[in-house]
Design a protein around this nucleic acid. Sequence first.
DNA 1: TTGTTTTATTGATTTGGGTTAAGGAAAAGC
DNA 2: GCTTTTCCTTAACCCAAATCAATAAAACAA
Lengths: 205, 205
Amino acid sequence: MEHQGKYQKIKTYYFGLLSTLTEDSWKIFESLLSIRTIKKGDYLLREGKICNHVSFVNHGLLKIYYEVDGKEKIIAFFKELTYCCDYASFLTRESAETAIKALEETEVVEINYEGLQHLYNLVPEANMIGRRIAENLFIEKCRNSSNNVTEGVESKYQKVVTETPWLIQRVPQYMIASYLGITPEALSRIKARNSKKTVVAAAQY
Amino acid sequence: MEHQGKYQKIKTYYFGLLSTLTEDSWKIFESLLSIRTIKKGDYLLREGKICNHVSFVNHGLLKIYYEVDGKEKIIAFFKELTYCCDYASFLTRESAETAIKALEETEVVEINYEGLQHLYNLVPEANMIGRRIAENLFIEKCRNSSNNVTEGVESKYQKVVTETPWLIQRVPQYMIASYLGITPEALSRIKARNSKKTVVAAAQY
DNA sequence: TTGTTTTATTGATTTGGGTTAAGGAAAAGC
DNA sequence: GCTTTTCCTTAACCCAAATCAATAAAACAA
């Protein structure tokens, strides 16, 4: 059966998140899902459009970013087994200030806005899932802004290196710089300074 | 009856938010609420404590801020008819990185963590309210970081002036500066520059 | 392989905001 | 009222990162 497990990953994810979810609720949910593939370099969402889907990344990698006077400011990366969405646009039904673009060949499982409202109506427990998702997104966003306010650029970079080493492997450095809110040149200098420090430290022995 | 309308404001707010809320659900909700007053300069939440209440501001004004090497970085202000909470700490049950302090004599209506979980269990529709609240907080947070990324300090200040003029009236300028992420001196210079511009522009005529 | 494009580094220069310091204005307290 | 504290402004100097510019190194394609 070819379709066996088409939605396996998101199903596992959900049952993990919420142990009380029933097989029946899942069937309804499943009926509202669809699959989309995005080629490297293509858009999942263009700036100015209303984000009409919540997408669960089966595999691949995407970036969400603002474009401000010609330069892109990356807010976040979405890798496999995470949600990918401009949730603010999705919820408010206002046009997105962001764009979402695939950095690798990507496959997502999607539910659209009407589908999700439908789900909330048919399956009241889904409100609890929706609540949890919104809460987690909020917590994540708080952690991010907290970092931006309380930490210097240097330690932010260190955090990326130690906490999300896969990022360093999978995206070019100038995108990391954009994500950190600095220019590629500035990041290059930070790295140079650090490796000098290491050399000096090593020379102590 | 002295207690008539003790929770009137929050009740109105809720019924406005969610027209389907029943009088019975409200009674349960009401039974979980309590009132607290905070004197000017006192804390609603201290850094390092777990935020154990969601507070609805009946009247007054508070600030939520980080303290980073001696200086405070204000994230937001809470005025009457808004929620006041370190919701990230409240949800995760982790100690808060922020503190919340009253800038004016303040009265809040509160529900504590256990109370809210209780409410979610007793009144399933409350999950929908909780979802809406989390969603709105998330949207708000997105707008904020969007501004921080896409806009310069100058236009951020202009936005405060035009969109939240009450803020300018009610808090000293150095707090506005902190909120904008700059020093009081820098804000003072921005204002000076702007009024010079205005004078120059006026001189054209 | 070689040529082409993309990405990273390094240097010189500029700049916006931080820091320090001092004086003035406004509010609060007595 | 006067005094004290709190708040705002202005100026001089400093610094981290942006910008501009050139080169080097990788990645990719033909």
